[in-house]
């Protein structure tokens, strides 16, 4: 194995990622190889300096902006991502509510028109007789009398 091939082992060695046998073989090689010793030192130094890299301080109120953005985005998505079943159920509920109101309104209108006692139809022809009577007993009597007379009954 030449120094170039040892190089990747060196990189893993400084991170403590070699197996026992790999580590022993590398350390044996390092005893005699100046090039690999230098590479190892440079890798160590590079790692140390990277770890020490300073961080620029955040801009004023950065966290206010960041968390404001997160809250805004998540609240919008929470609304957008409501399951389709929720929307279907909502539409169905509203439709049902309107149907009930419409039926109730229709019923009210029908009951209102039943008040007069003359709400019946009597029609008779040569071969058919059709009657439409209200529930009022008085109307029923009148209609029966008229019908009997028309057909010659006493």
């Amino acid at each position: 194995m030449n120094c170039h091939q040892w190089s990747e082992q060196l990189s893993a060695w400084i991170d403590g990622m070699l197996t026992e046998s790999e580590r022993e073989a590398l350390e044996e090689h390092l005893k005699d190889c100046k090039i690999c010793q230098q590479t190892a030192n440079e890798f160590f130094e590079l790692k140390r300096k990277l770890r020490e890299m300073p961080i620029p301080s955040p801009k004023p109120k950065m966290w206010n902006r960041v968390m404001g953005h997160v809250r805004y985005r998540t609240s919008r998505r929470r609304f957008t991502f409501i399951k389709p079943s929720f929307w279907l159920a909502s539409v169905a509920s509203i439709a049902l509510m309107f149907s009930v109101i419409a039926l109730f309104w229709q019923k009210q209108k029908t009951f209102g028109s039943e008040e007069p006692t003359v709400n019946f139809i009597v029609g008779y022809h040569a071969d058919t007789v059709s009657l439409g009577l209200s529930d009022n007993p008085l109307c029923h009597l009148i209609a029966t009398a008229e019908l009997s007379e028309a057909e010659g009954y006493e």
């Binding site: 955040p58 801009k59 950065m62 902006r65 960041v66 968390m67 953005h69 997160v70 985005r73 998540t74």
Partner: peptide, 10 residues
């Protein structure tokens, strides 16, 4: 970094 934080935290 600020943009990255906004996106990643969302």
């Amino acid at each position: 970094a600020e943009d990255l934080l906004m996106e990643a935290l969302t």
